[in-house]
Write a protein that binds this DNA or RNA. Structure first.
Lengths: 238, 238
DNA sequence: TTGAATAATTGAACGCTATTCAGTATAACT
DNA sequence: AGTTATACTGAATAGCGTTCAATTATTCAA
């Protein structure tokens, strides 16, 4: 209100909406840290309240219960994930280049925010009514980016259209999640490049050796040409 | 002890060891059902005790705590899984035939005992000290079967030896777990065949269209033979 | 068969944590 | 300033896993 007042939202926000939002952010941030540090069960509502500088009861004015608090934390994770994925895909034309970007992005994000992913895995993957909870829709939105790349790739015949889309998706994200876990368990610094290269290689030509598809189709052409030459000579001779 | 005694362990087992074992089985069975029906958190120790016809305190004589009870339930799951996998692999020579068997076995088992798998995912995948708990070793033993198939496949050059073994493993089991979840979420009856066929196809030749490797290598042989025929005739003629 | 010694079992009591709610303080508006 | 509506508080509640003093069953020597 006072004209010279600098817009410093961190100290004394003026509107009610701002105050509420700021408090919600503080709570979600406190919950994020508590969950990451202690896991879902290990994090106590009392701790979260203290960290957010709020009474325990106040948490329940902002979130129905501990699960809803987790939904909020995980929701923000998916928002970050989706935004970055969208950005990276936009300026890439080639199907496999897009897939490689998405793979690297997913892997790096999963490794960086591994504790969040653990929460997702352990608290959503086993609930019948997961589909009713917030992060489900956000997950759909994230995955939709991948789906559109693959659909387009199938139209372009970069990807075999007879494969079910969901199966390609399960292979892609299933592999990446497992690979991320492997990297985490290994400790050391994670070797992103090897994972991505291997995955892309397997996507392009399977697990058989020597990238046969490419190599042999070259041979095939050469041999075919040679056959025609020989056949032509034979026909000329006789 | 008494000579005419029929071996009926269900009613009045004689030795202490038998009694203890029988009770342990009853407890694990009760825990299994409770976990499957209600999930880990939903299942109450009081319920399990009642179902096993035992006092609550008795559970703690047999298992250190609720987690140890889960370890026992999951341990038995892995034992079943490993035994069947071992059996199926034994009488199969071809690398890809083994992989296909393992894939189908894993997928079918995961779908059949989905609730158990949910427990595994939600309670082990996020613990730092998972490696200390019982089921870790059993999981290793199970996965070792796959590893030995792939290692042998690499020696035989059925599988590209430059791929990291762990990466092939992550692709295999990551894909199958995600695919199992997809099948479960879809409801209906699960379509095992499509999952397995798609996976094997992607393993053999990636996601590119036309199964080129296999098809073209057959063409290659045919053409090569034909070329020799023509060449032979040409040589005879000239 | 006895009876002491040992082992197994019980269930009420404990501690811990998410959640609630009656009471209190703060903001909004006239 | 006074009044109403809104936001906040933290002690009280309830439900669960876990413990342990008391009780019952089993073993085994005499």
């Amino acid at each position: 209100m006072s004209p010279g007042e600098a817009q410093a939202p961190e100290n004394t926000p003026k509107t009610r909406r701002e105050r509420v939002e700021q408090r919600e952010n503080a709570i979600v941030a406190a919950a994020h840290d508590a969950f990451v540090d202690m896991g879902f069960e290990g994090a106590r509502m009392a701790d979260i309240a203290r960290a957010a500088k709020v009474a325990e009861g106040t948490l329940y004015l902002y979130f129905k219960n501990k699960n809803a608090l987790l939904d909020a934390v995980v929701g923000r994770f998916y928002e970050r994930l989706t935004e970055a994925a969208q950005d990276g895909v936009q300026d890439r034309a080639d199907t496999f280049a897009c897939l490689e970007f998405l793979a690297r992005h997913h892997l790096v994000s999963c490794i960086r925010e591994w504790r969040i992913l653990e929460l997702v895995v352990s608290r959503y993957r086993n609930l019948q009514h997961y589909q009713d909870r917030g992060p489900y829709q956000l997950n759909r939105r994230y995955v939709a980016i991948f789906d559109s790349i693959v659909s387009l790739g199938m139209k372009r015949r970069d990807i075999d259209p007879s494969l079910p889309l969901w199966m390609v998706r399960d292979l892609f994200y299933g592999t990446l999640e497992y690979a991320a876990r492997t990297q985490i368990l290994r400790g050391e610094q994670a070797n992103i490049a090897i994972v991505i290269d291997s995955l892309m290689s397997m996507l392009r030509s399977g697990i058989a050796p020597g990238d046969q598809a490419a190599v042999e189709s070259v041979d095939l052409e050469q041999i075919s040409r040679r056959l025609e030459q020989v056949a032509a000579r034979l026909e000329n001779t006789t």
